[in-house]
Amino acid sequence: MVTVNGKPVEAAGMTAAALVEAQGYACAQVAVECNEEIIPKAELGSTVIRDGDVVEIVRFVGGG
């Protein structure tokens, strides 16, 4: 089990890019962190998410 944005997701073994897309986001519009380390955009397709990983997928929203 992998934790994605605080929720449990069956994603072990997927690449980060596949996980982002499976969650309904476009890789170009988000930044991804795995266990508090940023996965650079260029490495999303080659980074494999492992069981127990904590993944954060973030984007820009309005703010002051």
Partner: peptide
């Protein structure tokens, strides 16, 4: 213009950019 960073949310697909 200022922006904030938040967890992506499957309910909102519009991109502020």
């Amino acid at each position: 213009i200022t922006l904030a960073v938040r967890r992506a949310n499957t309910q909102e697909h519009e991109n502020i950019l």
